[in-house]
Computed example of a mutant assay.
Amino acid sequence: MNKKFSLLTLGAALIAVPVIAAPGAMGAKGDADGNGMVTRAEAQAQATQMFAKLDANKDGKIDPADRAAQQAERQAKMFAAIDADGNGSITKAEWDKHGADRAAKRAERGDKRADAGALGEGKRHGMRGPGKRGGHHGMRGGMMAKADTNGDKAISQAEFQTAALARFDASDANKDGQVTAEERKAQRGEWRAKRAATAAPAGE
């Protein structure tokens, strides 16, 4: 007997990844001209694009309503991917196939890590407990909370831009108005050190 699941019933079973982005994150995407460096103007333009993407309902602010809308969109896309025949419901056979496909992809990724000699590193990441993963997301959430300067539980475009440029300035170690790959690497090292210090048990 095929057991059918409605979209609403399936929603509780889907894994929703929180949409929490660090404003102004320095990376290759911000390097509009491809010269290997990110200027302050490029960082500001990237922040504008990121804000527009996160402001799902286009009301000029980022708040829980946007995260809920993005989560619903992800769930709808996942439902459509599982609903192979597109009839608006998911049979047990479709659900089982989805699970088998995910397992196969995980196995493939594991094989690739092993081939690259990174299996041990993957296991270490896999052993991280929920607390550490939560701490990482919590840190990002903290960054977003800092962007909310007026404490209204929402982030305006101006607040997002201000946070983005503050992060740019923090990355721009020599204050020449541009961030190089070396400066980004150095800042990532500082972030990792801070996360490690935060995650370390008291007394260590």
Rank of each mutant, 00 (worst) to 15 (best):
P64F: 07
D101F: 00
V38Y: 08
Q44C: 01
A22T: 10
G131V: 08
M78K: 11
A16L: 03
D115P: 01
S156W: 03
R167T: 03
G142R: 13
L8M: 06
E182W: 02
H125D: 07
L165A: 05
T9S: 14
E108R: 12
F168N: 02
E94R: 10
A80F: 08
E94I: 07
R106Q: 09
A166M: 04
E42A: 04
G34K: 09
A181C: 02
D59H: 01
G86I: 13
D101S: 06
G142Y: 04
A197P: 01
A199C: 01
A181L: 07
R67T: 10
N87A: 04
K146P: 00
T162L: 08
D96P: 06
D176A: 10
A170D: 15
I155C: 07
A186G: 04
P201F: 01
A22V: 12
A81K: 15
R74V: 06
K97V: 07
G11S: 15
A154D: 02
R192H: 14
K123S: 02
A163E: 14
H125E: 07
A197T: 05
N57F: 00
G126R: 12
T162F: 03
K29G: 13
A164E: 03
A154S: 14
G138S: 10
G141Y: 07
K185N: 10
A154H: 03
A56C: 02
N2H: 11
A32M: 11
A103L: 10
A197H: 07
Q44T: 12
G151H: 03
A163V: 03
F168C: 03
K123L: 06
E159Q: 14
A80M: 10
A16T: 07
F79V: 05
G122C: 00
T39G: 14
G99T: 09
R124F: 02
Q178I: 03
A47P: 05
T198A: 14
K112Q: 11
A13T: 03
